[in-house]
């Protein structure tokens, strides 16, 4: 039987404690502050995903190792949703995922909001 060191960041459980936002633009690029249990700055991904019968979708939050603060917080930008033309909000999941080993945290929900389409305004600009 393998013996795990539960204090080592590689073996401890991943957990998202808190996020400053749980919704954002379907275009992505929203900055989010995420507070979490101990992570290694070069061995962690933030995976956005959706599961469906056709295989689903995944994309990753954008951050560099310097955006990981003292192993317990990450500042990242949201990825765009796979289709930017949505009529109503779409809720997906995100989780922390180790690059090596691939273990994951429990997911949290994130809601993509449609772009505000001011059709009249667009029309007016086109007229110019």
């Amino acid at each position: 039987n393998p013996i795990y060191d539960s204090k080592s960041p590689n073996a401890s459980n991943l957990k998202i404690s808190r996020m400053d936002k749980t919704c954002g633009s379907v275009m992505g690029g929203d900055e989010i502050f995420l507070l979490c249990d101990k992570v290694q700055k070069d061995d962690i991904d933030i995976r956005f995903y959706e599961e469906d019968e056709e295989g689903g979708w995944e994309a990753f939050g954008d951050f560099s190792p310097t955006d990981v603060h003292k192993q317990y917080a990450i500042v990242f930008k949201t990825p765009p949703y796979h289709k930017t033309e949505i009529e109503r909000p779409v809720t997906v999941f995100l989780q922390l995922k180790r690059k090596k080993g691939g273990d994951c945290s429990e997911p949290k929900q994130f809601t993509y909001i449609p772009q505000v389409q001011d059709k009249e305004e667009v029309q007016r600009k086109r007229m110019k």
Partner: peptide, 8 residues
């Protein structure tokens, strides 16, 4: 206060 390194 989150893990001594963040405060909401």
């Amino acid at each position: 206060v989150h893990r001594q390194i963040a405060i909401v």
